[in-house]
Design a protein around this nucleic acid. Structure first.
Ligand SMILES: [Zn+2]
Ligand SMILES: [Zn+2]
Ligand SMILES: [Zn+2]
Ligand SMILES: [Zn+2]
Lengths: 148, 148
DNA sequence: CTAAAACCTATAGTGACTGGAGCTTCAAGC
DNA sequence: GCTTGAAGCTCCAGTCACTATAGGTTTTAG
């Protein structure tokens, strides 16, 4: 257990996030508090680095923090059934699929808006006309912009 | 000019947004302030309804509020060249394309994580293993989740 | 020993709304 | 004209996941 005593800046660089992000994760109870020096500076061990890396990876895959929290807890119960982890991942996959579907219909609408001759005036502009009257839209993009 | 005097709730229902959203748009100077009754309740005209509908439509297409503000201003200058409107729309299309690309790579990573037999334990779970070690990722999804 | 770099806490800000408390006004039925 | 319930009002806090700043302290390399 030669705990390696990593200062926060080095830890941040090693996982590719901001120093404040690490302090924020500690504040919301996602990352356990590290030891402190006599002058109250944080010193992390290898376990912290792994947990933080796990968190950042899950965030990069778009999992919201509550899901990350669950996955992190599960990752410690190595004997449990993984059905729960799989369910969380599947839910995230569905959310990603919904967002892709949404964005695809937005894309085709934007492309349709832009498919017109240029150099004309606003009164004939299809971009402005479409925004002013959504019956000019072909697809039904009209739904909530569900965030991942 | 028989201004129709629509109360805020009816206006909200007619464009499919919340009452608070309308007040918020007024507060940030996006929607002009309406007339008020003697008791200080808002009463809108048809012009307001059109502007608000334009704003909501642009938002549904994912334009951020600063872009909506520009587009709204342009929509009043019917004689101007529409190059600027087109540029804003094209920028938005590019943002949408970036997001779709990002989400597609997230999707395939999530699908890869989930493609394993079920009924096993956490210690063998590919979902958890992948999160713990991103070298198990095939694609390079590791980038910022650029918001639209 | 000095000076710069890194660290600390606390607070506020981001975008685009959303929700609530506590009050007032409006409109319909009687 | 009166009652009553729906709808409106202002102001403020909360959402999510950070990010930035101010103003101070600690560490570390030279
Ligand atoms: Zn145009
Ligand atoms: Zn539309
Ligand atoms: Zn599994
Ligand atoms: Zn990965």
């Amino acid at each position: 257990m030669g705990e390696v005593s990593i200062p926060i800046g080095k830890l941040a660089r090693s996982v590719g996030c901001k120093v404040q992000t690490i302090r924020y994760y500690e504040q919301i109870g996602l990352l356990p508090p590290p030891t402190r020096t006599a002058g109250a500076q944080r010193r992390y061990g290898e376990g912290h680095r792994q947990k933080l890396s796990f968190i950042r990876h899950a965030r990069e895959l778009g999992f919201p923090l509550p899901a990350v929290r669950e996955l992190l807890a599960l990752s410690d119960e190595t004997d449990s059934d993984c059905a729960k982890a799989d369910r969380i991942a599947r839910r995230q996959l569905e959310a990603v699929n919904r967002r892709i579907a949404m964005l695809s219909s937005l894309r085709s609408e934007l492309e349709r808006m832009l498919r017109h001759r240029h150099g004309h005036r606003i009164r004939d502009c299809r971009v402005i006309a479409t925004l002013a009257d959504h019956t000019l839209c072909s697809q039904d993009h009209h739904a909530e912009l569900a965030e991942s």
